[in-house]
């Protein structure tokens, strides 16, 4: 992958994020429970009794067990399906979207520095706040090209969920958002000879007519012989009158965008992303789904006219896609 493909973001784009707070501070969902600590030390394999045995901990002069210091970050996690980063006030969403658009779609944690100022103990409510400290210029690394993002998180603890907490620690966290080497992103199809092939549709007696049509440069759609209703995708019976009798008609290939999605993730290596996938109302009155691989997502809108095109995928397989009709781009 050439560097030209991922020039990176400019200081003008990045500087506004430095110093911004990542949304309002967040309180842990529950006070710290002894079982939280036990789960963590079980995973680590730490057998120190002061984390689980009050008597052992009191023998060291404390009033209860304490949480291990390196467990600090755990109190900021929202769990599976959690909402830790989904708040609309979090500027990281905007930053990550910018980075995604610039091709830096992968992420890896590179640094973590923790500072311990007090013990976290069972019963404590932990409140975390996080600030974006800096976003680096674009860097080339062994993983690929990307930007480093550094945030600083502060942790306060209080036995009272409404009380002012005492600062117990800080964590500086650095991520690398990068465009991985050896993986296409944003380029056009056809250039990579070592690219895996696109998935092949399962062709059977019900849908063979459709792929025979695309080989012949036609978009053939089923039509019920009894009531005349068009239907797609192919099926053995008419949904309107349940007749099994059908034939096919060639569509004009023109239609309008009923709706669309822009697929960023997960990525299948055979396709280029962001990938526009459109739901098209064909002018004959039936709806059809296909990708719009040559269309910039900024140019796509509901209601725009589109036309079908065909691309040879394998010697015996041609797949349809859509492009914006002449003169329709915004």
């Amino acid at each position: 992958m050439s560097q030209d493909e991922h020039p990176g973001l400019t200081r003008e784009q990045l500087d506004p994020f430095a110093g911004k707070s990542c949304g309002p501070s967040r309180q842990s969902r529950d006070p710290i429970a002894p079982s939280d600590i036990r789960s963590w030390i079980d995973a680590i394999g730490d057998t120190n009794p002061i984390y689980v045995d009050d008597d052992a901990s009191m023998a060291t002069g404390r009033s209860s067990v304490i949480a291990p210091p390196a467990m600090l970050q755990v109190w900021s996690m929202a769990g599976l399906g959690g909402t830790s980063k989904s708040t609309t006030q979090d500027p990281r969403k905007e930053l990550f979207a910018l980075l995604d658009d610039a091709g830096f779609t992968s992420v890896v944690a590179t640094n973590c520095e923790q500072e311990y100022l007090g013990d976290a103990v069972p019963g404590d409510w932990i409140t975390t706040s996080e600030v974006i400290e800096s976003v680096s210029d674009v860097k080339d690394t062994g993983l690929g090209r990307g930007h480093f993002i550094t945030t600083v998180m502060s942790f306060t603890a209080s036995p009272d969920p409404l009380g002012d907490g005492e600062l117990i620690g800080r964590q500086r966290w650095r991520l690398f958002r990068f465009a991985p080497k050896n993986r296409g992103s944003g380029g056009q199809a056809g250039g990579d000879s070592d690219r895996p092939p696109r998935p092949r549709p399962a062709i059977n007696r019900d849908n063979a007519f459709f792929f025979e049509g695309t080989l012949a440069g036609e978009l053939r759609i089923q039509k019920c012989d009894s009531c005349g209703t068009l239907r797609h995708p192919p099926s053995p019976a008419c949904g309107a009158c349940q007749s099994f009798d059908w034939s096919t008609v060639a569509m004009s290939g023109r239609g309008t965008i009923h709706s669309f999605v822009v697929n960023h993730h997960p990525q299948v290596p055979a396709f280029d992303y962001p990938l526009v996938v459109a739901l098209v109302d064909l002018e004959e009155g039936v709806r059809f789904v296909a990708e719009m691989p040559d269309t910039d997502r900024e140019d796509v809108a509901i209601g725009l006219p589109v036309e079908v095109r065909y691309r040879k995928q394998e010697d015996d397989l041609v797949m349809p896609h859509f492009v914006l009709a002449e003169g329709s781009s915004q």
């Binding site: 730490d46 120190n48 291990p68 210091p69 390196a70 890896v108 973590c112 500072e115 311990y116 013990d119």
Partner: peptide, 28 residues
Amino acid sequence: GMLTMGLAGVLLTDWFGDGTLRTFGGRF
């Protein structure tokens, strides 16, 4: 990365004693 950091923290707390760590951090 934080699993590795947690594993490494055990060595430090075993060596320096419980509740004595002031700072701990590094690069993955």
